[in-house]
Amino acid sequence: MKAHVIVFPGSNCDRDVAVSLEQAMGRPVEMLWHGETEVPATDLIVLPGGFSYGDYLRCGAMAAHSPIMRDVIAKAKAGTRVLGICNGFQILTESGLLPGVLMQNMSLKYICRDVHIRVERSDTDYTRQYGNGGVLRIPIAHHEGNYSADDGTLDRLEGEGRVAFRYCSPDGETTEASNPNGSARNIAGIYNENCTVLGLMPHPERLCDAQLGGTDGVGMFSSLVEAMQ
């Protein structure tokens, strides 16, 4: 499997996701500067977390128009797997690859803590190593992670099985108390129509190492490796 991580000037989780991917893949990941115009042939493109262009306006809005994004969008439409984590999810919505928008957290504060998310389907390239309805403990770290879309879009996402993860209690209940940021219908991550593009706010790359307090993130990267072999 080949993977490329796009590096925007303000990316700050690029190294973290590369480390986790490399652990799963057993081979190096390519880092690709945002100023490039073409992504080499690859199995996975990652848009990492961070503050791509400072995000003083709308998060991810400028990154969506970065030189490399034209080819990322083309490759995504042609079926290449694209994973957007946190700021990467924001860039995916801003570039139109995923519907909806990430608004300010309901608390109007930045939140960094472990949350629980429920795996809504375990038959995608990102989740095949997780059980259906399995609950993962994964950190969030964002100020704008409040997923919002109109009811029609939300109904369509649910109807088409495109909700990837929902915030939940430790035993898997999607309660209001377990929703850290006010996201519509507790949505933490969504897929495109073919489930080849995934955007999510939680950071699976941060809990892929027992020494850091957990390994629930590993399954996403090992699922990808299994799928892409």
Binding site: D16, I111, G213
Partner: peptide, 25 residues
């Protein structure tokens, strides 16, 4: 206070805030 600080970025935080001392690898 510390939930408003990203205390895990760089993926080397072994002991998080709220302890006697933080530990980073």
């Amino acid at each position: 206070v510390w939930e408003q600080y990203d205390h895990m970025v760089m993926a080397d935080t072994v002991v998080r805030p709220g302890s006697d001392a933080g530990i980073v690898r």
